[in-house]
Amino acid sequence: MTQYLAKKAAILIGSLFLVTTLTFFLMHSIPGDPFVQDKAIPEEILKALHKHYGLDQPLYIQYGKYLDGVLHFELGPSFKYEGRTVNEIIADGFPVSFYLGMEALIIAVFGGIVLGSIAALNHMRWQDHMTMIIAVIGISVPSFILATFLQYLLAMKLDLLPVARWGTFSQTIMPAISLAALPMAFIARLTRANMVEVMQQDYIQTAKSKGLNSFQIVVRHAIRNALMPVVTYLGPLTAAVMTGSFAIEKIFGIPGLGQWFVTSITNRDYTVIMGTTIFYSAILMLCVFIVDLLYCLIDPRIQLKQEIDGR
């Protein structure tokens, strides 16, 4: 088991390093100057600005300094917002995004598992078809389109929910649902497919032959084995929620990290773009790693398989 985790940790560190390097060199390969966008700035001030931000140094030194900063969780100052550091911006925006993300996650996981189970246990009957139609719409309609649709219908036309902004619980409903739709649909389909497969397994037949009733069979034998693959989806799920939040926060005017990220893209605020990208990547990879860890603990077969494969 430790070998398995060590391998996953190595991939994590390698990818993070790759992202940092990639991000750094990409940002620095943009032609032009980060300061010369809005208005004409006199030569000396430009030079002073460059010196102040360390941009006059050779590239590899800048890179080294940046790496050093990342390792110490210092992501530098914002070029656009005087006096604000990237760290501050992240600290401001992340809690909001995190809250929204968690809400969406909870909706997605519970909603998805329930929907998927209903479908599987009524295989090929109307409940199955109904839920799966909802699911395929869920994965096909992009989250930002669903968001605008909900906003238009429920807020602008019917006035049931607040249109935008953040602060009250009712303001979280539409954004969370929009974010949750895709992962929920995915989880529903995955749960259903796994459940159907599990219910056809021989050990379910054995359980039945012992006289167990449907509840005991589903809860004690089926659900656990069907849900294990769903755990592995939690990594990509985090990614979906995270990237989805960029657009959702923009639509609903939510002051989360996603909005900052989008704004910094439009503004070409390079340090914020870099810092946020690295931060997001780190969070995502950490989530994937935690999921791998969880999966290892839940499935007793993994340990044996790793020993056999010599990994």
Partner: peptide, 14 residues
Amino acid sequence: GMIFQDPMTSLNPT
């Protein structure tokens, strides 16, 4: 009671 052909798949692995 009943016993089945393939004991590997007929017992819950977890």
